[in-house]
């Protein structure tokens, strides 16, 4: 892996010598590729090592396998639970609640943020209230929702929606507030007013803030739906985790935890992918940060 084709020395001037610029570019490309591969490997190595240690500690009898079943057991549980349909069912139910709440909360939150951003009276009327409510732990209003809607899907989805709503409303509004007035002036000068100002200037300008909100709220939504299912559902992954604890079955509990973690990761990745597609103008910073005094010479 360390043997690399070195660029031909510039002093050699025979006709067969490759263009030094092309060689330098090629070696820089190789270096970038090698670093990318190395970092990907490291990212995989950390959890792998931790799992191996966990496994070893169990096999050596150092940890209590009744509380910390080794990863191999957990994997076997996962396979069994998948085969029996128990896991897919729980995941399906949770994903449905999560997505309905997330998408609805995001749409309403973005819309509210936009309307508040362009219409000052609404902003004046709701901004202080929303800011105050934002700090309230969302799970604390679950009992009220249960009182109102009973033990149904509505309070579960609604709580996710409320959590996502606040984050998006606040991020969208902040995005509008942060629009450079000089950019707005330039747009106005070139004839963009009303709907077109909104469509071609305000909307693209707030998009990065909206995506910050979507990313933050993805993790939040998974947290909320899991907590809700702990106490106010008799199905779903949250219920699976909680119930496994109550009947003292650590295996399924760990499977549930892993599923929830995976859900959060997938949702965040989806948001990131969408962001890449929708915000092609975002600058990807070119220079790598390094503590080394000078960048290493190419190759």
């Amino acid at each position: 892996m360390t043997t690399m084709s070195k660029p031909a020395p510039v002093s050699a001037r025979s006709d067969s010598t490759p263009d030094p610029m092309a060689a330098a570019l090629e070696s820089e490309r190789k270096r970038t590729r090698r670093l990318t591969r190395r970092y990907a490997l490291l990212a995989l190595a950390t959890p792998t090592v931790l799992l191996l240690v966990w496994q070893a500690l169990g096999s050596l009898g150092i940890t209590d396998t009744r509380i910390f079943p080794p990863p191999s057991d957990i994997a076997r549980y996962a396979v069994d639970m998948t085969a029996s349909g128990q896991l897919p069912e729980a995941v399906g139910i949770t994903v449905a609640r999560l997505m309905v709440g997330y998408v609805a909360g995001a749409i309403v939150g973005i819309a509210m943020g936009l309307v508040m951003g362009v219409w000052k009276p609404l902003q004046a009327a709701f901004d202080p209230l929303f800011s105050a409510l934002y700090a309230l732990p969302k799970i604390s209003i679950l009992p009220i929702l249960l009182l109102i809607f009973g033990f149904t899907e509505t309070p579960r989805v609604l709580l996710v929606m409320i959590g996502v709503f606040f984050i998006l409303q606040i991020n969208t509004l902040a995005g509008i507030r942060q629009i450079d007035p000089r950019v707005l002036e330039a747009a106005t000068a070139y004839g963009a007013t009303g709907w077109r100002l909104f469509r071609y200037v305000v909307l693209p300008a707030v998009l990065p803030s909206v995506f910050t909100g979507l990313r933050v709220s993805a993790g939040m939504a998974v947290t909320i739906i899991t907590s809700v299912e702990f106490v106010a559902a008799d199905n779903g992954v949250g219920f699976l985790i909680w119930n496994s604890w109550q009947i003292f079955q650590p295996g399924p509990m760990y499977v549930g935890m892993a599923s929830v973690a995976l859900l959060g990761a997938i949702l965040t990745a989806l948001v990131l992918g969408l962001e890449r597609i929708l915000i092609p103008w975002r600058s990807v910073s070119g220079r790598r940060f390094t503590l080394r005094r000078r960048p290493r010479p190419a190759a």
Binding site: D180, R182, V183, E185, A186, A187, A189, Y190, G191, Y200, V201, P204, A205, L207, I279, W281
Partner: peptide, 19 residues
């Protein structure tokens, strides 16, 4: 016409980053 009478070149920040 539909074209604005005055076209501006601003001191800075006149171009749209998303275009």
């Amino acid at each position: 016409s539909a074209v604005p009478v005055s076209a501006f070149v601003f001191q800075e920040h006149g171009v749209f980053p998303w275009f």
